[in-house]
Amino acid sequence: MAIIEVEDVARTFTVRRKVGRLKRERSEVRAVDGLSFEVVAGEMVGYIGPNGAGKSTTIKMLTGILVPSEGRLRVAGADPSRERVRLARRIGVVFGQRTTLWWDLPLRDSYELARRIYRIEDARYRHNLDRCIELLELGPLLGVPVRQLSLGQRMRGDIAAALLHDPEVLYLDEPTIGLDVISKNRVREFLAEINAEAGTTVLLTTHDLTDIERLCSRVMVIDHGRVVYDGSLEGLHGIGGSERTLVVDLATPQPDPITVPGARVVRMEGPRQWLAFPSADSAAPLVAAIAARYPLVDLSVKEPAIEDVIARMYGGEVGREMEAVSG
């Protein structure tokens, strides 16, 4: 069952620009344009894209603090902007760059307030808080004023605050931004755990692809306000002319590059040569063809770095190709 439904959603902003002394020019910016996707309850989806692609605009519309200019949105069966307050009780939101905690007060006080805001019954509050304290190692931090927490500690505190009322959907906007490796891992482990145990649907935006690799079976890439890729992380390799590299070590250095159909040499160094071939192709026939003609000592296959694939998508090459395909 889809818990998040986005159908042909567009959002335009009117930008006023000063032209000359008094004249102002109005222009429209389409931050999100023809966006469509669905998220099934219990899924954990990575939502990535370059700065200004429309990620935050999407999250704002999904939480109801921004209405779409066109299209249709449903979250947990509700129209977010029209039932914002009602929906707020069923979703959790965490911003890496903002905090919902009370700055001057001990962490514990913010949780007490959350208990009142969401009218969480005592037993459930105790249970959820204990769980967060245990998994996010918040115990020693409860009495510390939020302003004295480190970024990683504050982030963990914020995530706990967003989960005390058992939200069905959790939106995370760059939850690991600025965190060190240990803090990032702790946050990731926690998110994986609550997703597995409570079945919380998670939509996560990030610039750190490791977050996606560790957590999300599905990734959506958005650029210029529309989804340019929706599928598994591995699947990203297969599209847009991504290439793998076959590294071969020959018995003796060859004066000329190896010539085999379906691959081309991109680098030579003594007896070692690097051959690029399409990711979607199998390496086996290539290896067989080379072994038949050259004295082969050793070989290895290198996967393309996912960052490179995505960097190319952001560059627009793949995005345009995909758009052309999807019409």
């Binding site: 959820n128 145990e197 409570a198 919380t200």
Partner: peptide, 10 residues
């Protein structure tokens, strides 16, 4: 949080 979702949202 564990399995309390159903309880949380009648």
């Amino acid at each position: 949080m564990a399995r309390s979702v159903a309880l949380a949202h009648p």
